[in-house]
Nucleic acid binder design. Structure first.
Length: 290
DNA sequence: AACCAGGAGGAAT
DNA sequence: ATTCCTCATGGT
């Protein structure tokens, strides 16, 4: 077993990270020890790493441990937790904006990436149009039923496994037929190699959106969320997102949900860090669990 | 008890 | 090119 510690530049509030990702019941989190288990695939093989916060928001430090693949794991974990992207200039960018108060309240909340690109897409398809509580239940049932557990953490099923599922099997989990078709169809494309998600890391945002929206079940919203939470791209604003619309409505005290044109107007000022505007707007309407 | 939910596809205009 | 309808279930 290897262990490694790192220090990074603040602000970076890991307690807020845990608070946010604990909204997803799939994540195994120890709030007392400020620790999370991270299931990731390296060369297609599953490994679980532990990340523990041992510093403060202004002097963040982490203790990371795992069984193998130290170098590649550290690289991937740094990407997932955005350890090399200082938030100070992000906060500076929003410091005098309409989002000032929200950024202050959630100061040091980094963008945390999903642990797996394929899982990210599947999760976002499942989440389409559903309220968060039900969507998370569906996702959890899906992973618990067809995924696998290793070293205390859950992995999504492999694309090959999911491609072999039937619509009826997923309907038994309360998927709609269409959503079941979407997940199975996507899984077939990933399993066959027709869709190479890892290969998209070098692509431009728009090229990825164009490619992904060719897949049945993936519209612009899902592709944008893939860019945002799968790849960590900094300038996405999913304006069709009900949550962001509600956050904007609350922020500007609107009578009704903003139109698409209004979403464009509001967000114009937040370039080129729209992803952080999105993230913090989501945060502004997310409630703590329990 | 309606109405809405971190949408998308497909048909009808 | 836009607008409308359906999907399907759970939360509020």
């Amino acid at each position: 077993m290897w262990k490694e510690s790192i220090q990074i530049e603040g602000p970076y509030n890991f307690d807020l990270v845990l608070e946010r990702i604990s909204l997803d019941p799939l994540h195994e989190i120890d709030l007392i020890n400020r620790l999370i288990k991270v299931p990731i695939l390296i060369n297609g093989k599953p490994y679980v790493y532990q990340v523990q916060a041992v510093g403060t928001g202004d002097a963040p430090a982490f203790l990371i441990s795992g069984e193998a693949e130290q170098e590649r794991a550290m690289k991937r974990l740094a990407d997932i937790f955005q350890w090399n992207l200082p938030l100070s200039h992000i906060h500076a960018h929003f410091g005098e904006s309409k989002l000032k108060d929200i950024f202050e309240t959630h100061r040091g909340t980094p963008l945390i990436l999903d642990f797996d690109l394929y899982g990210c897409l599947v999760k976002n398809i499942i989440h389409q149009q559903l309220n968060m509580a039900f969507a998370q239940k569906l996702t959890m049932d899906f992973v618990h039923t067809y995924g696998f557990r290793q070293d205390g953490a859950w992995f999504y099923p492999t694309p090959g496994r999911a491609a072999a599922l039937t619509v009826d099997e997923l309907r038994a989990l309360k998927f709609s037929s269409r959503k079941a078709e979407y997940v199975i169809g996507l899984s077939e494309k990933v399993a066959s190699g027709e869709l190479d998600l890892e290969g998209m890391r070098e692509w431009s945002d728009e090229a990825i959106i164009d490619e992904l929206t060719k897949v049945r079940g993936i519209g612009r919203w899902t592709a944008e969320n893939f860019l945002l939470f799968g790849l960590g791209r900094p300038n996405l604003f999913p304006k069709a997102d009900i949550g962001i619309q509600n956050a904007i409505k609350l922020l500007y005290n609107l009578e009704k949900k903003p139109t698409m044109d209004e979403m464009d107007q509001f967000s114009e000022q937040w370039h080129p860090y729209l992803s952080y505007a999105s993230l913090y707007l989501w945060r502004s309407i997310e409630k703590r669990r329990n």
